Simulated scan of single mutants.
Amino acid sequence: MEFEERLAALATKVENQRGAIQTEEATKNAFVMPFISTILGYDVFDPLEVVPEFTADVGTKRGEKVDYAIMRDGEVQILIECKKSTGALRIENASQLFRYFSVTNARIAVLTNGQVYNFYTDLDAPNKMDDRPFLVLDLLDIDETLLPELRKLTKDVFDLESVISAAEELKYVGAIKRAIAAQFREPDEDFVRLFTTRVYEGSFTQKARTQFTALVAKASKQFLNEQVNDRLKTALGASYSAPVGTSTPSDVVTSQPVAERDIDRDTEITTTLEELEGYQIVKAIACSEVKPDRIVNRDAKSYFAILLDDNNRKPIARLWFNAKKQKYLGLFDADKIETKHPVDSLDGIYEHAEAIRQTVRSYLD
């Protein structure tokens, strides 16, 4: 599998098993060791590459251990400290990393609970681990812009200098993105005041603050949704407000082969943006099992079909989105018998992720 596919497979495992993992040792075995081996590419059973329970006596501290040390050419390059998967990561959990960072050659330290991986280096002071990570990888919410830098830490293409040189920008860009996300989820007073004073001429009183806190939060969410929808429309090459098959200049879609595949030949069929968004969700789920280009769609009058290898005998799912009230996701069992599951929103598709993957796997078997 490709790097991204291996990462997606591990993310699926974390999503499915995280609730059952209750101890730090179980977290290491189920999530962290697979991350070291399948993602970073190091042999966890070769002590020349990965040293578990790594010990380096520091001052008066004797016998303290870091969970894993990744070695290259006999030198420690990466230190990894693990916490149980159900616990949040705090810098207070990294006391051993701080001490060991200053007495080894390691330039990268990782604090993880198996789902979130915080990567640290020494940007603020030489040989002293920073308080803030320069890279945060959440397997359940992967930021794809970080993957090129993560790949540089893998065994085959290890490029520490490149990672360190990019670390400062990564650190602050990542922190700013997380701060923006936090404000969009729950805006604080300064954020609300910033936008209120630009659109409201009155004083920023307690009443105004209460009123505009809700308005700013609502406007932020609507703005994000509109941006996502605009990006999706652009990627698919059309706005689906008009029925498919109406007279449209041919050059509108000639540069959009993806859109051409998504439009049914039947002129009485209207492919909606919601159907295409649902298709992209099912496709993203199924990509953990097969390459994306093997997952295609065919729209029909009653339903929107998603198939493996464009083969009617290999249905993955059907989107029954044409009804005005209740929408359904059609899934197939081993005998290809369809069961319709009600979904109230597109997010409801994710609740059936494992069933979708199992259907794909059944065709591969």
Score class of each variant (00 low, 15 high):
residue 159 D to H: 10
residue 64 E to T: 01
residue 30 A to S: 12
residue 260 E to F: 03
residue 358 Q to K: 12
residue 5 E to I: 09
residue 350 Y to C: 11
residue 346 L to Y: 03
residue 354 E to Q: 12
residue 210 T to H: 08
residue 365 D to E: 15
residue 47 P to R: 10
residue 121 T to K: 02
residue 286 A to P: 08
residue 342 P to W: 13
residue 298 R to M: 12
residue 272 T to Q: 12
residue 121 T to E: 07
residue 322 N to F: 02
residue 303 Y to M: 07
residue 15 E to V: 04
residue 164 I to Y: 15
residue 158 F to K: 08
residue 29 N to R: 15
residue 310 D to P: 03
residue 260 E to S: 03
residue 142 I to R: 01
residue 328 Y to E: 01
residue 196 T to K: 14
residue 290 V to Y: 06
residue 219 A to Q: 05
residue 235 A to I: 03
residue 237 G to M: 06
residue 229 N to C: 07
residue 302 S to C: 04
residue 159 D to R: 14
residue 311 N to D: 14
residue 155 K to Q: 15
residue 17 Q to K: 15
residue 37 S to I: 02
residue 104 T to L: 13
residue 148 P to Q: 14
residue 75 E to S: 12
residue 105 N to W: 00
residue 364 L to I: 15
residue 134 F to R: 02
residue 97 L to C: 10
residue 65 K to Q: 06
residue 282 V to D: 02
residue 300 A to S: 10
residue 128 K to W: 04
residue 157 V to Q: 11
residue 257 P to S: 13
residue 32 V to D: 03
residue 341 H to S: 07
residue 99 R to V: 00
residue 10 L to N: 07
residue 222 Q to H: 09
residue 82 C to H: 04
residue 200 Y to S: 10
residue 39 I to L: 08
residue 54 F to D: 05
residue 338 E to C: 01
residue 51 V to P: 02
residue 265 R to E: 14
residue 195 F to V: 03
residue 325 K to M: 02
residue 320 W to A: 04
residue 77 Q to Y: 10
residue 263 I to W: 03
residue 200 Y to W: 12
residue 359 T to P: 03
residue 87 G to L: 08
residue 79 L to T: 01
residue 126 P to L: 10
residue 356 I to S: 02
residue 194 L to W: 07
residue 239 S to N: 15
residue 354 E to F: 00
residue 276 L to H: 09
residue 51 V to K: 13
residue 244 V to F: 01
residue 260 E to I: 06
residue 115 Q to L: 00
residue 104 T to Y: 09
residue 225 N to D: 14
residue 74 G to T: 08
residue 175 A to I: 02
residue 150 L to E: 07
residue 147 L to G: 08
residue 152 K to N: 14
residue 153 L to H: 05
residue 293 D to R: 11
residue 274 E to G: 04
residue 38 T to M: 12
residue 269 I to S: 05
residue 236 L to P: 00
residue 73 D to A: 11
residue 335 D to L: 10
residue 103 V to Q: 11
residue 323 A to L: 05
residue 263 I to R: 12
residue 149 E to D: 11
residue 247 S to V: 06
residue 350 Y to S: 13
residue 149 E to T: 13
residue 233 K to C: 05
residue 229 N to F: 04
residue 302 S to K: 15
residue 361 R to P: 01
residue 81 E to D: 01
residue 72 R to K: 15
residue 185 R to L: 13
residue 127 N to M: 05
residue 138 D to T: 07
residue 221 K to H: 14
residue 17 Q to E: 12
residue 323 A to M: 02
residue 3 F to T: 10
residue 290 V to K: 06
residue 338 E to M: 08
residue 42 Y to H: 14
residue 205 T to M: 08
residue 200 Y to A: 11
residue 275 E to A: 05
residue 259 A to Y: 03
residue 65 K to H: 03
residue 208 A to W: 09
residue 83 K to M: 05
residue 308 L to V: 08
residue 237 G to Q: 11
residue 141 D to I: 00
residue 138 D to R: 01
residue 53 E to W: 00
residue 353 A to Q: 10
residue 213 T to E: 14
residue 78 I to D: 02
residue 206 Q to D: 05
residue 29 N to P: 05
residue 166 A to K: 03
residue 347 D to E: 15
residue 50 V to P: 09
residue 192 V to Q: 00
residue 3 F to D: 02
residue 71 M to S: 05
residue 34 P to C: 07
